[in-house]
């Protein structure tokens, strides 16, 4: 009970009294509007954009970005950060590929990927929560250790060709819908339920909003932090399974290009880097927004050199919009 009252106290503190809508809901609506405007714009420029096939495409590409960002969203909401998700994906995918090549077993491959993701997350959690080291630097150090480990493990040669049933998770269809999209929906739902409807979820939000107050209120801050890092690692491991199934090949460079877009997706989705606010639905919308921008650039055959530029613009644009909105309100 006390938790919920604290919770609402923080909420009232953060949103101004006159606002008609919950700020999180408003931020989601704002993102839907941006998404709709963007889609309409691209559709006018290119008639192929609005096809069902292209949409499936975009969703499938966004799902990988979402999966890697989902757990990291929880970490950020709880007031920390995880820079190691890309590297966790790489190492999980590489070792899982090695295991599958040696044993031919999809089950073992999936278990390996998840186990590595969870262990890496646990290591992050223990260092950050248990030993109280700064999250930015710990996860950054882990990034180097994990990607160096993947490079060493692979020895320069990619591993390709996985069992059919394994590939189903990355490139299969269920009821006409690509499996990665279904996984994305499942994770988004499960994560949202945990975040919004359980005590642990509420505690995470409180910790992010005010760590000191949360500690005083008796919330198990350390245990929860370890949990969010484990969740983040597990999501990266799951993303590794999907990525492997999709490209049918593992190489030690596969996670690198995903780190910045995944953080961008979280932030574009309206999660505050200061912690305490954010939603998984927002992250999903953020991933979708970024993917659509890149998809549109491909459809309009704009050179790939401009893609990081566009990502940067979208990111700063979203932040600016939020800053101005908040400013007008206060």
């Amino acid at each position: 009970m006390t938790e919920t009252t604290e919770m609402s106290a923080i909420r009232t503190f953060r949103s101004d009294a006159g606002a008609p809508l919950d700020p999180e809901l408003r931020s989601i609506i704002a993102r839907f509007v941006v998404l709709a405007v963007l889609c309409a714009g691209v559709a006018l420029l290119n008639e192929n954009f609005l096809s069902v096939a292209n949409f499936t495409n975009v969703l499938r590409q966004a799902s990988l970005l979402f999966l890697i960002a989902a757990g990291a969203t929880l970490v950020i909401i709880a007031g920390a950060i995880d820079l190691s998700v890309g590297a966790i994906l790489t190492l999980s995918a590489c070792v899982a590929a090695g295991v599958m090549h040696a044993t031919g077993s999809s089950g073992l491959g999936i278990a390996t990927a998840l186990a590595i993701g969870i262990s890496a997350g646990l290591a992050n959690g223990i260092l950050v929560a248990g030993l109280r080291l700064p999250p930015f630097l710990v996860t950054y150090g882990m990034l180097w250790i994990l990607s160096g480990g993947a490079l060493y493990y692979m020895g320069g040669i990619p591993i390709t060709g996985f069992p059919r049933e394994f590939r189903f998770l990355g490139s299969g269809f269920l009821l006409g819908i690509p499996v990665p999209i279904l996984i994305m929906i499942a994770i988004a739902l499960a994560g949202s339920v945990v975040l919004h409807m359980t005590t642990v979820g509420q505690q995470m939000v409180m910790m992010g909003a005010n760590r000191a107050a949360a500690t005083l209120a008796g919330i198990p801050v350390r245990r929860n932090l370890i949990c969010v890092y484990v969740a983040s690692g597990a999501c990266a491991g799951l993303a590794a399974v999907v990525a492997l199934g999709r490209v049918n090949s593992a190489d030690p460079g596969m996670g690198d290009p995903l780190l910045l877009p995944s953080i961008a997706a979280i932030l574009v989705g309206g999660t505050s880097l200061f912690g305490g606010t954010g939603t998984l639905l927002g992250t999903a919308l953020g991933a979708l927004l970024l993917t659509i921008v890149l998809n549109a650039m491909n459809l309009l055959t704009i050179g790939s050199a401009w893609q990081p530029f566009a990502t940067g613009i979208v990111l700063v644009g979203a932040m600016l919009a939020d800053a101005f909105l908040n400013r007008r309100r206060s």
């Binding site: 950060i81 910045l260 953080i263 961008a264 932030l267 505050s272 880097l273 200061f274 050199a305 401009w306 893609q307 990081p308 530029f309 566009a310 990502t311 940067g312 613009i313 990111l315 700063v316 932040m319 600016l320 800053a323 101005f324 400013r327």
Partner: peptide, 21 residues
């Protein structure tokens, strides 16, 4: 604007890298 430095500079990182390319 009171935006977090991490986000701002991540965004300008993308812009600068894209412009350079």
């Amino acid at each position: 604007l009171g935006m977090p430095p991490f986000v701002v500079t991540l965004g300008t990182l993308g812009m600068a890298q894209g412009l350079a390319l």
